[in-house]
Design a binder for these strands. Sequence first.
RNA 1: GGACAGAUGGCCGAGUGGCUUAAGGCGCCCGCCUGCUAAGCGGGUUGGGGGUGAACGCCCCCUCCCGGGUUCGAAUCCCGGUCUGUCCGCCA
Length: 426
Amino acid sequence: MLDRRLIRQEPDAVRDAIARKGLEAPVDEFIKLDEKWRSVTHKRDELKAEMNVASKSIGELMKAGKKEEAEAAKAASASLKAQIQDLEEQERTFESLLEDVELEFPNMPHESAPDGLTPEDNRPVREWGEKPFFAEGTKPHWEIAVEHGLIDFDRASKISGSGFAVYTGIGAKLQRALISLMLDIQTTKNGYDEVYPPALVLGSSLVGTGNLPKFADDLYQADDDLWLIPTAEVPVTNLYRDEIMDGTVLPVKKCAHTPCFRKEAGAAGRDTRGIQRMHQFEKVELVKMVLPERSYDALEELVRDAESVLQALGLHYRVIELCAGDMGDKGCKAYDLEVWAPGIGEYLEISSCTNFEAFQARRANIRFRRGPGEKPEFVHILNGSGLALPRLIAAILESGRLANGDVVLPPALHSYMGIDVISADN
RNA sequence: GGACAGAUGGCCGAGUGGCUUAAGGCGCCCGCCUGCUAAGCGGGUUGGGGGUGAACGCCCCCUCCCGGGUUCGAAUCCCGGUCUGUCCGCCA
């Protein structure tokens, strides 16, 4: 959601900024409705003020025992009342239409976000580590996983259809170990507080983060108004919905492990082999709420926090700055982390770190106060994956595979796993 | 799933149709007073929207869980909902 005043006062700037994403916003429709809404509201308020004065004087007349005058005044206010009722109905109608239009507005990209509409326009920022060399080649993770009995794809599709995985034995333990490692890094080294939120949320929470109403098709709906979360971003961000925080508690930094559920409709084909794109997957998410003037520094820190996991695991990756057209609807500026998967020979998007500025805060009404007596302001909200499990597991398996088929685990995992190598023996 | 009870400001808590501009208390802020602190005295202290102004401001509307309704007038009456508590049922 954007600032109503901004759209009113600088409609062209808003339109142009959103056009950089290749998107259109209903600016004209908004302005038309907003004008109607304001004029109706203004008129209604004036009549209400009149009515309030009249009611008060009726009360005084009654008290003074002047029954007849009071009755006359009552009769006189009848038409006022009818007008007010009519205007209130109009006001409700316009307000609701205005909200519908308002929720359709994408966020505006930050001026520093590169121009462009496709991934080719994204800007490489930096790389870490090197591509490992495999003299005798390596394999895609789905082959390695089956070889070692880590994932059972066949039985997964038997019980749940396509797009699911059953992690078995060491495979299941590897996922559990990675979740623990990532949460430990974020809580002990990077200063995040751990939370474990519900995986089912009300529709209003999804409106707050910007998933509804526009992107209902991406989501699983469990009940009338209960939805499966597509990411922990949704429940964690909404923890503070309709709250005014003391500015001194900022920055708020939360990390959470949850399952994530996505329909991924229309995504069949490329990039869907193995565990690259699942309907259900685990993820550790990082969410930050910060002072507005700090949010771009906070974005850089957030990216470093997500990177620290890949560095701890010794995996080669690169950081990409997304162009305006590739960052999606909600963001102002975003970086992707792409981990190298040598078996597939591709970089896999494993984290997306985004600054939403006040877009989500406005939708979810999350504010802070700088000091006693100060006006509440919207916080700036950022989030990033830290990290998504399936692609991380894919990268670990493909990167650690030896010529003899064994998979060497990164040292950071040894104590969590109790083994150093996945081999035929275990 | 069933029954009953409740929801009032930052917090506690009074309030059954107009004297509520929400009593009283606590907390917090500003001032006065005072060797310091405490006490005491005075004042202030929800949030949202709209209008106006260069600005400090000023004006109007709304806000006693939410949404409707009755009434000239609603914290108060009516209807629908949400959440919390207690008991019953079911249950890892």
